[in-house]
Amino acid sequence: MDSNTIPSAEGNGPNCLRAQALAALAATEWPEKLAAVRAIEDDAALDCQRSFEPIAGLPGRPERPHLVAPAEVKHRSMATLEGRAALLHALAHIEFNAVNLALDIIWRFAGMPEAFYRDWLRVAREEAYHFDLLRQRLAALGVAYGDFPAHNGLWDMAERTRGDLLARLALVPRTLEARGLDASPMIRNKLAGAGDKDSAAIVDIILRDEIGHVAIGNYWYKQQCTLAGKEPVACYAELARRYDAPRLRGPFNLEARRAAGFDDAELAALQAG
């Protein structure tokens, strides 16, 4: 059942970690959202069984950037400051969406072990850190988050999988976010090649942390497959078809993917297409 349709439980206060995650998800301005994520304590009270009424307008996001179809996002030359700023802006938007995705999985899916929710809180914090690093770098280049248009592909998949935890785990961290593991070395090298070592260093930090985030997705995906009696590779292929996931194309960062918990059978299936 989609948790959007389940009424809130009685007698649970707003300090519950999952309630705080929902409130942070609803925050519209980025300073408010980042502050709300930072305010959630490691040892915050946690009701794993509680179901919530969603807040209207999820996810909260600022009026800018203007959202367009992916094909409408222009590619600019790395030889220009504007081109590098546009790339960093696109990365910042991905990280902003990733904050929302981590917060969403915390409140939306009840009945998981405590460690599940605390794992995704860690992800939300690190994604917020990445967003802020990129935002500060953009500011140093004379650009603000919202100055370029952006697309909403990450959140679109979250909407499609809002009633299916196994699909969410398969198709967001293990598919869309794992694509970042493949793309990061090329992006980093482009920035470094253009002489932008400060921006390249931020991409290095993001890749390091994203390996851990994809590993969390892999762990819980495989845990849910085991509970459901499903073989992970075949289950992934079925979910990718059902939810029309994008077909992944190489080159693949096999070293990073192995570090993130993809096994040989999964990597072989990935390379086979």
Rank of each mutant, 00 (worst) to 15 (best):
A9P: 03
E10S: 13
G11A: 14
N12F: 11
P14Q: 07
Q20N: 10
A21V: 09
A23S: 10
L25I: 02
L25E: 15
A26D: 03
E29Y: 05
E29L: 13
P31R: 07
K33W: 06
L34A: 14
A35G: 14
A36G: 08
E41N: 11
D43Y: 02
L46H: 01
L46S: 05
R50S: 10
R50I: 09
S51D: 07
P54T: 12
R61N: 04
E63P: 07
A69M: 12
P70E: 11
A79S: 12
L81F: 01
L81H: 10
A86C: 11
L87F: 06
L91A: 12
H93N: 14
F96G: 01
N97D: 15
N100A: 15
I105E: 03
R108M: 10
E114S: 13
E114A: 15
W120V: 05
V123F: 08
A140Q: 13
L141W: 04
L141G: 04
L141I: 05
G142C: 09
A144Y: 02
N152D: 14
L154V: 07
A158C: 08
T161H: 03
R162M: 08
G163M: 08
G163F: 08
L169D: 03
A170C: 12
L171M: 08
V172K: 03
L176Q: 15
A178K: 10
R179F: 03
G180R: 03
D182M: 09
M186N: 05
M186L: 09
D198T: 15
A200V: 00
A200L: 06
A201T: 01
A201N: 04
A201F: 01
D209Y: 06
G217R: 06
G217E: 05
W220K: 05
T226H: 13
A228W: 10
G229Y: 08
G229Q: 10
E231G: 09
A234E: 15
A234L: 14
A234T: 14
E238Y: 02
E238D: 13
E238Q: 14
A245M: 04
R247T: 14
R249K: 14
F252D: 02
E255W: 04
R257I: 01
A259H: 05
F262G: 01
E266D: 11
L270Y: 01
